[in-house]
């Protein structure tokens, strides 16, 4: 177990999450892709912390990333609920007009 191997695993997780975030049509599945990308960030940050500088600052940064995951999930569910209630939509392709 080295920093390189940890970062390789994190890169694989990030790439898989990116594929999902771009390719999926269902809003909740897009959120899953984003969560997987943040999962990779958590792993990479943990690796950096352990192998480069195991000071408390790194742990605080990890806590912030985990908080970001929570916020993303909560707001994502809220937006998905709003979309479904007002427009009866759960797919990104149905809501492209929101970008205009």
């Amino acid at each position: 177990m080295t920093l390189q191997t940890v970062l390789l695993v994190a890169a694989a997780l990030f790439s898989v999450g990116l594929y999902g975030a771009i390719s999926q049509q269902v809003v909740v599945m897009v959120m899953m892709g984003l969560e997987l990308m943040l999962n990779a960030v958590v792993l990479a940050a943990g690796g950096f912390w352990w192998f480069l500088s195991p000071a408390p600052d790194g742990q605080v940064l990890l806590l912030v990333v985990i908080t970001a995951m929570t916020v993303e999930m909560a707001m994502g569910f809220a937006v998905a609920t709003l979309l479904h209630r007002t427009r009866n939509e759960d797919m990104t392709d149905m809501a492209t007009d929101l970008a205009q």
Partner: peptide, 12 residues
């Protein structure tokens, strides 16, 4: 996704 992995893995 593949390009992203290659770039990140190269950096790592």
């Amino acid at each position: 996704a593949v390009v992203t992995f290659v770039v990140l893995a190269s950096g790592a």
